[in-house]
Amino acid sequence: MSNSLLTVNNLTIESRSGEPLLKGINMEIGRGEMAALIGESGSGKSLTARAILGILPDEMKVNGQILYKGRDLLKLSENEHRLLLGKEIGIIFQDYRGSFTPYIKIGQQMIETIRTHQRISKKAAKEAALLVLRETGLESERVYNSYPFQLSGGQVQRAAISMTLALRPNMLICDEVTTALDLMNGEKVLKYIDKARRETDCAVMMITHDLAQAYKWSDRMHVMYQGAIVEDGPTEQIRFHHQHPYTRKLCSSLLSLPKERKASSAEGVYSI
């Protein structure tokens, strides 16, 4: 891939007792690409993300390479890594309540975050914060002046995303960001992430166990099973022409809506 942003080469992680947790992961994510990392609980999705972010527990043994813009993240000092996080690689977690300190207003926290990474005045940071909040479709002034508990889950999650995107990262890791949200709020959040990555060419690594979501939003899918990527490829290919037995099992477990049932039987006819 010529426009590769992140390349993971043969990444392995062992627990302290020597148990293999990740078994030689290879992955490439291009600029502006939406890549889905899909698999069941315990398959190693979040562990992969944590390795990229450099937030694994010390006792885990990590081997391999994680090249971000050509630099091996595993060889960076703690300080170099810290500078990268947020500014270059943003992260949004499943538990949106943990994204903000409960007793500080959202706006205050956004200013603090922005000014940690950019040397700008408070006033400029406030404007930047209000702008990204507005872009997420939130009532910017109200959210800016609210405490996290005064907002709904979907609003807090969108505020967390806008805070992450305010730093204009080149890569965004979304770890099950919609799991704690309603279907409709989840869709809003994903729509916004998709819009943002198209506008800023930011790559997105979307960790999810939701197959429908991966089909709908990703360009490429990486299917994880028991610490390994068993299959990867363009989303259409994984959806309709998967090879690996686990992918087959996973894909067949998506319950179809009545309309899709008719559509998929038609697809069956074409494929014969």
Binding site: E40, S41, H209, D210, L211, K249, L250, S252, S253, L254, L255
Partner: peptide, 10 residues
């Protein structure tokens, strides 16, 4: 539950 398990339960 995981998606593959969801289908089994349903």
């Amino acid at each position: 539950l995981d998606v593959t398990v969801q289908v089994q339960i349903l």
